[in-house]
Design a protein around this nucleic acid. Structure first.
Length: 904
RNA sequence: GGGGGCAUAGCUCAGCUGGUUAGAGCGCCUGCUUCACACGUAGGAGGUCACAGGUUCGAGUCCUGUUGUCCCCACCA
């Protein structure tokens, strides 16, 4: 309980004493010298949860501010990339919440159809089970169990990171509402003719046994072979030579193509060749797709297993022979090779070709091979019946809203170019997957009349023939089909909820660059199509988090960083701060323990500043309000605080989160701790009780308000300390964000204080250069035309510049003294025994040269008429001021040198 | 093949629409058992802002080219 009996209770277990409105506090002993985040973070998070401050409701008196979380996959646990995904928005949300917005930070998880299914299949393998053994229903039961287990774990980890999400509104891409939205969209697009089913060339993963969209295929450089083959002409007049990287596909060859202009082969066009091993007669066709310069200029055409060949096949009306099973093995069309797995077939076919004399040579070749994004199995192009979204009409408005600036990308140029490039060349989106875990396609086939029924509700009868024999399409939807609806499906769409009206469109999205096509682009066209409105106003792309050597984090390198370990070791605040300081949007970030340690040190610095203040206010009546009267340094720190408040707010508005963080860091460490606290010590130990009290109040006020600025970045430690200081209001998380106050801006006093600080630094530097220990004090004479600031800070100068005494005046003549010169004054330190006159003269001469050079520079500028004519006034004034200072400095140095000459 | 990023101190990186003397963290060197903090404090060394041109009164910043490096898209069998 508070000594003053105000009844205020402490947040259980805090290291600091009770919080208290009156400012009277218990005297605290035995505070840990180093900040220990583990205990604090847990307790503070509970405190926030109990306070209900993460929850947002539509409120007509407030402006909405919305961020939806990129839903992490439920495949496992959080990695440091997620920490990046989530820290940035959490900073923005906490900031906006403090600014009084109804700030909604909407979390959730993604069912991640293919990724999750693959994991479950792997896990089942260990039990010796396959999907088919279990059957669809049992498999889905397992999947939901998986979701319970891992979805929950992710949320726990996000809480440890300090995310201030509205957990009550947490969503899952396969929950009831999202599933309804998915069906609604599917039916709507189908009815508009924007979803169709058809037989097309698609990418197929033989391992996952499903179709993939184009962007789910990643090209990897592989070392392979280039087999040069000879196909005999049917008329026995010779051979035609060609080369291939996939000899097994020859089983499905239905032609050989050459370029129509190729003189070497013109005479052969129209003739036939005998396909070796298969003995099928296939034509030689002419097609411009063939590049004359590559290989022999002859291409074998396999329309069923190559997208280009498929096109050639269409142009020449070639038969399509599918020779591959779902698992990549050769099917019955492969004759004697039927049943062989792809690689086996390749080996056997090469062997047989060689034996038959059809193999000319084998060359090594590095080429790009498409692989499944999930399992990295080589993807096979394959003809198959799938569902597609027709893209061209959807892409147009999605390009438009970025072009006209309704949606802004950051970094702008880089992101928009990438986006346009993709959107403008977009192909139809293959959305069906031969998987079980996901949204099942809402299409039913009538077994009697063949009618396809696409419906939001499960149909009983065929609307065409009335048959009851309907079966649902076996396939599920691409996992991104549901995440594309995330910004509005999570707000209740297709219902017209209050939330949807209030919070949509959302404000910012903070995704990684890697999902610009998968997710960002698709949300944009979905938002436009279904809501008629953009899904978000700004997209801030962040870069990749790399390891200390700059390598991509990957399982194979085992260089991934577990954010939970980092939090355990350094604290969540340190991790969060580390992820944003010194970074700019869109650029990759290197992660190292040293970097987190730097942020941890900052937390500790803050902790100790608070500890110092507690040592001075505990047990005393210190309200956290500004005093009536300010000293020079009070005005200086308050004025600095105003500037920082203004700048940090502006930086956040421009999403310059890294710059904002460094400004708070510098202010707190350099200005507040290294200068203001040091100055405060003098005043609080001095005889002037009123001034000592004022000092305490200013210390409290500045720290308390700086905590507000820092809170979005380092929420835990700031809340902990803020609660321990005299404060108004329940919690820092809902305190008002500081607003720039002109009444507390003192530019003149700031400049005066800087003069004093420059003198102190100059003296310290000179002493340090001469290796004088702080214990050895020296008298200081300060020569200045304007003594007010130096007089006001007399005590400070003595203490911080290690003076035994201080005299301030217009002119001194001091023998055997070390001289320091700043822009505003000259100081003498009589240290006869330490003064090496020759060295002093050399040093002063060097300094004079430097000053003269700078002065000449400035004067040259000022005498340049075009500069005066064209440069803005503030720049000219700056140069003028600087020249004036330099002239004074030159004069003072010259004077000192003269004194040495005359020996006085 | 097309597009883009990056190149600034020993290392990792900031540097907004061009504007006074280019900054930070870490590392390094030198003082300091100063009554918040050695996860500290006070100083110091260290940069031709990749290279070559150009625009401008003025360029780390804008333009062109060159080199190195990384990424994205396309996918020549």
């Amino acid at each position: 309980m508070c000594q003053a009996g105000c009844g205020d209770e402490k947040i259980a277990g805090g290291q600091f004493p009770i919080r208290c409105e009156t400012g009277v506090r218990n005297v605290n002993t035995e505070l840990a010298k180093a900040y220990e985040p583990q205990e604090v973070e847990k307790r503070i998070y509970d405190f926030w949860m109990k306070g209900g401050w993460f929850h947002a409701e539509p409120d007509p008196n407030k402006k909405p501010y919305t961020i939806v979380m990129p839903p992490p996959n439920i495949t496992g646990q959080l990695h440091v990339g997620h920490a990046m995904d989530e820290t940035m928005p959490d900073i923005l949300i906490r900031w906006k919440r403090m600014q009084g917005y109804s700030a909604l930070w909407l979390p959730g998880t993604d069912h991640a159809s293919i990724a999750t299914e693959a994991k479950i299949v792997d896990a089942m393998k260990e039990e010796g089970l396959t999907k088919e053994d279990l059957g669809r229903e049992k498999f889905l039961e397992r999947a939901w169990e998986w979701r319970e287990k891992y979805g929950g774990r992710i949320v726990e980890q996000q809480k440890l990171l300090g995310l201030s999400c509205d957990w009550e509104r947490s969503r899952f891409t396969m929950d009831e509402g999202c599933s309804r939205a998915v069906r609604h969209v599917f039916v709507k697009l189908y009815e508009k003719g924007l979803i169709y089913r058809g037989e097309r060339m698609i990418n197929w993963c033989p391992h996952c046994k499903t179709a993939l969209s184009d962007i789910e295929v990643e090209f990897e450089e592989q070392h392979g072979s280039f087999w040069h083959l000879r196909y005999p002409l049917a008329d026995g007049s010779g051979y035609i030579e060609l080369a291939t990287t996939r000899p097994e596909t020859m089983l499905g060859d239905t032609a050989v193509a050459v370029h129509p202009e190729d003189e070497r082969y013109k005479h052969l066009v129209g003739k036939n060749v005998i396909l070796p091993l298969v003995n099928r007669e296939i034509p030689i066709v002419a097609d411009e797709y063939v590049e004359m310069d590559f290989g022999t200029g002859v291409v074998k055409i396999t329309p069923a297993h190559d997208p280009n060949d498929f096109e050639v096949g269409k142009r020449h009306d070639l038969p399509i022979i599918n020779v591959m099973n779902e698992d990549g093995s050769i099917n019955e069309n492969g004759g004697k090779y039927a049943g062989l797995p792809g690689m086996e077939a390749r080996k056997q076919i090469v062997k047989d070709l060689e034996a038959g004399g059809y193999l000319i040579k084998t060359e090594p070749l590095t080429h790009n091979v498409g692989a499944c994004q999930r399992c990295h199995t080589v993807a096979e192009p394959r003809i198959s019946t799938q569902w597609f979204v027709k893209m061209d009409s959807l892409a147009k408005p999605a390009i438009g809203v970025v072009k006209d600036g309704r949606i802004r990308f950051i970094p702008e140029e880089r992101a928009t170019k990438t986006y346009y490039n993709w959107m403008e060349n977009i192909k139809d989106w293959c959305i069906s997957r031969q998987l079980w875990w996901g949204h099942r396609i809402p299409a039913w086939y009538c077994e009697d009349c063949g009618e396809i029924v696409v419906s939001e509700t499960d149909p009983d009868t065929c609307p065409k023939c009335g048959s009851k024999h309907l079966h649902q399409d076996e396939d599920t939807l691409d996992t991104w089909f549901s995440s594309a609806l995330w910004p509005f499906s999570t707000l209740g769409w297709p219902d017209e909820t209050e939330e949807l009206k209030y919070y949509y469109p959302t404000d910012v999205l903070v995704p990684g660059f890697d999902i610009i096509f998968f997710w960002v682009a698709r949300m944009i066209f979905s938002g436009m199509e279904h809501m008629g409105e953009i899904p978000f106003k700004t997209v801030c792309f962040h870069g990749l988090v790399r390891d200390a050597q700059g390598r991509k984090m990957s399982k194979s390198l085992n260089n991934g960083v577990d954010p939970m370990e980092v939090i355990e070791k350094f604290g969540a605040d340190a991790l969060r701060m580390c992820l944003v300081t010194g970074n700019s949007m869109g650029n990759d970030v290197r992660f190292s323990d040293e970097k987190v340690a730097a942020s941890r040190n900052f937390a500790n610095k803050l902790w100790n500043a608070a500890r110092f203040i507690h040592m001075n206010i505990d047990g005393k009546h210190v309200p956290c309000v500004l005093p009536e009267a300010f000293s020079l340094e009070d005005k200086w720190i308050l004025s600095r605080f105003q500037s920082v408040t203004k700048e940090v707010t502006e930086n956040l508005e421009k999403f310059e989160v890294g710059v904002a963080a460094s400004k708070i860091y510098d202010f707190l460490w350099d200005d507040f701790c290294d200068w203001f606290i040091e100055l405060a010590k003098i005043r609080m130990n001095g005889p002037d009780q009123a001034d000592a009290q004022n000092t305490r109040q200013v210390l409290c006020w500045v720290l308390s308000n700086t905590l507000k600025l820092l809170h979005p970045f380092m929420p835990f430690i700031t809340e902990e300390i803020w609660q321990s200081l005299p404060h108004e209001g329940e919690a820092l998380i809902i305190a008002s964000w500081p607003v720039y106050d002109e009444a507390l801006h003192f530019p003149e006093e700031e400049r005066e204080m800087v003069k004093v600080m420059e003198l102190i630094t100059a003296v310290r530097t000179r002493r340090s250069e001469m290796n004088v220990p702080p214990s050895r004090k020296a008298h200081l004479y300060v020569e200045t035309g304007n003594s007010a600031a130096f007089e006001a800070e007399r005590e400070a100068i003595c203490r911080l510049a290690y003076c035994s005494g201080l005299e301030i005046g217009e002119s001194f003549s001091v023998d055997g003294a070390v001289t320091v010169v700043t822009a505003a004054c000259k100081g003498y330190l009589p240290m006869d025994d330490l003064v090496d006159k020759a060295a002093e003269i050399a040093r002063l001469t060097k300094e004079l040269e430097g000053a003269k050079k700078q002065l000449a520079n400035a004067e040259a500028k000022l005498s340049n008429e075009t500069f005066i004519g064209k440069a803005p006034q503030n720049v000219i004034d700056g140069v003028k001021d600087n020249a004036e200072k330099l002239r004074e400095k030159v004069r003072m140095i010259e004077e000192s040198l003269k004194a040495f000459d005359t020996g006085c």
